[in-house]
């Protein structure tokens, strides 16, 4: 028995050590540097809470949080709305089911960066051209150059790509619902809308939760699309938190300062995660 125990230890401890060394340790280091004035090279001194105080005073940081959350919440809602609709459609009695499913899932396998490059062209050239043809002046310019609309462009790209994954999840959820339930419901004379709210939705509610959580988590980290499409602009209107930490931390030579920003971000994510983990645990029970 003891032997078995030691085998299990050998199976897990190397992984534990490596994970600690390459994930937990850098996390701790990040926290450590946030109390210094390190530029990323050379010497440094401890500066106490100065970086944190500055983070809270920094409009640029505050704006990046506002943008990131606005973007993440709206994208999450849109993604779930669209993917729910598409999944309901794909689950109905339609033709070309497999082909359509394959097409709708396609964006999920593509590189986010390259997708963003392609959309960049659409916004810069295709849309203005179309708008001009049809005389829609408000869209005749590149929306990525408009601080009020640039974020919409990023939402479009992110949603276009993320709908794929969430659709498949909803579809999987819908397929777990036995068709007898629908028949029973239609025998009762319930309308389509009623059937959805009273039969379908409660049964796929766990999928809804998971989808919201996964989508939100991904969107809060948005980076590739920003790099490819706006570089944080125009002005600083699309600077996401990840992007600001990368940009400010390296280019601005403010490694320590952005580390403090990262720690604040971390705390916020943890607060959200506590809620998320509780959802995940609830799933555990279902297993």
């Amino acid at each position: 028995m003891k032997k078995r125990g030691s085998a299990y230890i050998l199976m897990t401890v190397p992984a534990l050590l490596l994970f600690f060394a390459f994930h937990t340790f850098p996390t701790l280091q990040g926290i450590f540097y946030s109390f210094t004035n390190w530029k990323g090279y050379g010497d440094f001194d401890f500066v106490g809470l100065k970086n944190y105080i500055n983070v809270f005073k920094d409009d640029r940081v505050v704006d990046s949080y506002l943008f990131t959350f606005k973007f993440a919440i709206i994208s999450t809602l849109l993604v779930n709305l669209f993917s729910m609709l598409i999944a309901l459609g794909l689950n109905a009695n339609i033709r070309f089911k497999n082909t359509l499913r394959a097409v709708y899932f396609l964006p999920n396998i593509l590189s986010g960066l390259i997708v963003a490059f392609i959309f960049n062209y659409i916004f810069a050239n295709f849309l203005p051209e179309m708008a001009e043809k049809f005389g829609i002046n408000s869209l005749a310019t590149n929306i990525l150059g408009n601080p009020d609309l640039a974020w919409v462009g990023i939402v479009i790209v992110a949603v276009w790509q993320a709908v794929a994954f969430n659709t498949i999840l909803y579809l999987a959820g819908l397929q777990t619902i036995p068709s007898e339930l629908y028949e029973a419901s239609s025998l009762d004379g319930a309308g389509k809308w009623k059937t959805f709210w009273h039969v379908t939705f409660p049964l796929i509610a766990p999928f809804f939760t998971i989808n919201m959580v996964l989508a939100m988590k991904g969107f809060l980290m948005v980076f590739d699309q920003i790099v490819a499409m706006t570089g944080g602009g125009p002005g600083q209107s699309t600077e996401s938190i990840s992007f600001l930490i990368y940009k400010g931390g390296f280019e601005g030579g403010e490694f320590a300062y952005q580390s403090a920003n990262a720690v604040v971000y971390f705390v916020i994510i943890v607060a959200i995660s506590v809620v998320q983990i509780r959802f995940l645990q609830r799933r555990e029970v279902d297993l």
């Binding site: 150059g145 408009n146 601080p147 944080g232 125009p234 002005g235 600083q236 400010g248 601005g252 030579g253």
Partner: peptide, 19 residues
């Protein structure tokens, strides 16, 4: 000074919507 991001602040001003 590096890191003040002057170009983006200027861009924001020129767009003229926020500042």
């Amino acid at each position: 000074p590096q890191g003040m991001n002057a170009a983006n602040i200027l861009q924001e001003f020129l767009i003229g919507k926020k500042t």
